[in-house]
């Protein structure tokens, strides 16, 4: 709370002079106005802060309201049904949820080790003059809009994969027992794997920059102590830096995962938009966001629209949980850094 009246130097001086002059009356008016303005400004800023909270609750309420018809019709079955048939008005979210989870998993599987290695390079090996340019370049990668990844993925990356990586996977891993079904089928170019790889490139900067930040926050004394007993650079990173920064790294990984789960345009271009669950990662599939982006404007009928909004609600709930967990972990490490 703010003290209501604080006598200023001028007040005291006037009291000493005694008597109420015209100037003092004007002063009082001006002060009243300032006080009013002060209170108004405070309340306006407070209202804006509440506004941010309202936005989030608004999103949740609107999505629930919009998805009620679909949820009422299909109930819990919506989550576990594999059907998606606009003609018979039969909708199930399972293929989209499956595609979202698998593409994100592929992305994290690649982006996390690579991101950690880049952070390792930036904090321990990189010459200082190179540190900033590389850091900025990695962050520019994060700034490239997702539609650019999409158009690049469809016209440059997918044909490249179709001719190189995918036939290679089919000919090698496709013959290994147990995992062979994962790499079955023809090389389409587009599909789950391609979407996952593009997501990996998109998520990489997030994982890298947060890992770098938490690596840098490790106290120098700890590292020096490890070096002084003869540890190699790798051993210092593996046994001192990583354990110390673990919570922050997990937070950064979850933040990247949140991005990957909700990423829309890049995935929409290369996923193939097929509502089915295939064992093979080379097959086309779909994700929640790609389904919404592809079908929402063409959706005819309330139930179809509502089913798509319900998909949006599922996506929002999943990302909310992941992002909340990420923020909680990052908050913990920030508190420790102080």
């Amino acid at each position: 709370m703010e003290p209501a009246r604080r006598p200023s130097v001028v007040d005291i001086a006037l009291q000493e002079g005694g008597g109420v002059s015209v100037a003092a009356v004007t002063r009082a008016k001006v002060l009243d106005r300032l006080r009013l303005g002060d209170a108004a400004f405070r309340h306006v800023t407070r209202a804006a802060a509440f506004g941010v909270l309202l936005l989030l609750s608004g999103v949740i309420i609107a999505l629930i309201a919009g998805s009620l018809p679909a949820l009422r019709t299909f109930g819990f079955g919506f989550l576990v049904s594999e059907r998606w048939n606009p003609v018979t008005n039969n909708f199930g979210a399972l293929p989209a949820i499956y595609g979202t989870v698998v593409t994100s998993a592929i992305a994290m599987l690649i982006a996390v080790p690579v991101g950690l290695l880049i952070a390792f390079f930036l904090t321990e090996l990189c010459p200082p003059w190179l540190r900033r340019p590389i850091g900025i370049a990695i962050e520019l990668l994060a700034g490239v809009p997702s539609i650019i990844y999409g158009i690049w993925g469809l016209f440059a990356f997918a044909p490249f994969l179709q001719q190189t990586l995918q036939p290679f996977l089919i000919n090698t891993l496709g013959h290994v027992p147990l995992i062979a079904p994962l790499f079955a089928g023809p090389p389409y170019g587009i599909g789950i794997l391609t979407a996952g790889l593009i997501l990996a490139i998109m998520v990489l900067p997030f994982v890298t920059s947060i890992s770098r930040d938490v690596f840098e926050a490790v106290p120098g004394v700890l590292k020096e102590a490890a070096y002084s007993i003869g540890c190699t650079t790798w051993e210092v990173v593996r046994h001192v830096v990583l354990p110390y920064a673990r919570v922050g790294v997990i937070g950064g990984v979850m933040l990247g995962l949140g991005r990957a789960l909700g990423e829309t345009m890049a995935v929409t271009f290369v996923i193939g938009n097929a509502h089915r669950i295939s064992a093979s990662v080379l097959a086309p599939g779909t994700t929640i966001s790609a389904t919404i982006a592809n079908e929402f404007t063409e959706a005819v009928g309330d139930l179809y629209t509502s089913a798509l909004v319900a998909l949006g609600l599922i996506l929002f709930v999943i990302t909310f949980i992941v992002l909340a967990a990420a923020r909680y972990m990052l908050m913990r490490i920030e508190r420790r850094i102080g």
Binding site: F50, L56, V59, L315
Partner: peptide
């Protein structure tokens, strides 16, 4: 307390899927 709650929510909005924002504006 309001600040820490808003900061938390704001950070989530910062990385929330933008397609969900589109759905929200469509609905309202």
């Amino acid at each position: 307390r309001l600040t820490s709650v808003v900061r938390f929510i704001n950070d989530i909005l910062l990385s929330a899927p933008s397609i969900v924002v589109g759905l929200f504006i469509y609905e309202v």
